[in-house]
Amino acid sequence: MSEFDVEFIDRSEDDRDARFVVRGVTPAFANGIRRAMVADVPTLSIDTLRVIENSSVMFDEMIGLRLGLVPLTTPPGEFEAGETVTLALDVEGPATAYSGDLVSADDLVKPADENVPIIDLKENQRLELEAEAVLDRGKTHAKHQGGVAVGYRHLQTVEVVGDLGEFEDDEPQIIRGVIEDDGELVPTEEFGNDLRNRYPGKEVRVEDVPGAFVFDVETDGSMSVDDLVLEAVDSLYARADELEEAVQL
C-alpha cells in the first residue's frame, strides 16, 4: 500500500465537513476515491417497516420513504453488508414525530439528526411502527450514500509573469478552490475568488499542480469525514485485491 500525503485545509467542528489536499495520486485514483465515497461505503438506513398503527395524513409508504432518508450513525467495521438493526417509533398526536423519537435496539445506531420532522400528528392520530435498518451501499439506493456532494479539483499554483500594462483592460481573474503560493495553501475565498485582489497590477499564470487534488467532502452524519474517506480507500483496495485474485492463473 503506498502512502499519500494528506493535508487538511479546513474542517467543521462536528466532523461532517472537510477540505483537504492529497498529493501523489493520479486523477483516476482521485476519482475512484470520490466514487467510492458516494456509492461504495455502506451505511445503515431504514428499509422495511412493520406498521402497527398509522392514522396520520400520510400513507405508510410515504412515511417509510421519509424514515429511510434519515441518516443513521454507522460505526465502520461493526456491521456486515445486509445486517439489520431494529428501530421503533411510537408517537401519539397532537405532536410531531421527529427522527429523534426513533428508539434503536442497538446503542451504536441512532439517528444522526434528531430534528427531522417525519409527520405532524393531530388530535387522535397515532403513528406506531417497527423499522428494520439494513446496511447497504449507495449503489443500491441513494439513502445509503454516506457522502453528500463529494468533489475534488486540482490544486493550482499562481505564477507572476510580469506587470500589467498601464492602460490594459482590468479583467476579472476568477478562480475557485485552493491555490498554492510558496508552499502555503490559500483558499480562494480569502481574496474574493479574484486574483486581481491578491496580485494587483500583475500578469499571472495559473497552472495545475500535478498529482495534487483538493477534496471537498461532506457526510450526511452517518460517519465522520475521516471514517468515510478511509472506508472509501479501503473499499478501493479491497476491490483491487479481488480483481488480482480473480485474474490469477
Binding site: V57, M58, R66, L69, V70, P71, S99, A112, D113, E114, N115, V116, P117, I118, I119, D120, A142, Q145, V148, A149, E218, D220, G221
Partner: peptide
C-alpha cells in the same frame, strides 16, 4: 406536505433546519 428530509439534488439533510 411535510418538508422533504433531504435535498433532492445533493442529498444533504435539510429537514432538520426547517423549524428553525
Amino acid at each position: 406536505m411535510m418538508i422533504p428530509v433531504r435535498c433532492f439534488t445533493c442529498g444533504k439533510v435539510v429537514g432538520e433546519h426547517w423549524e428553525e
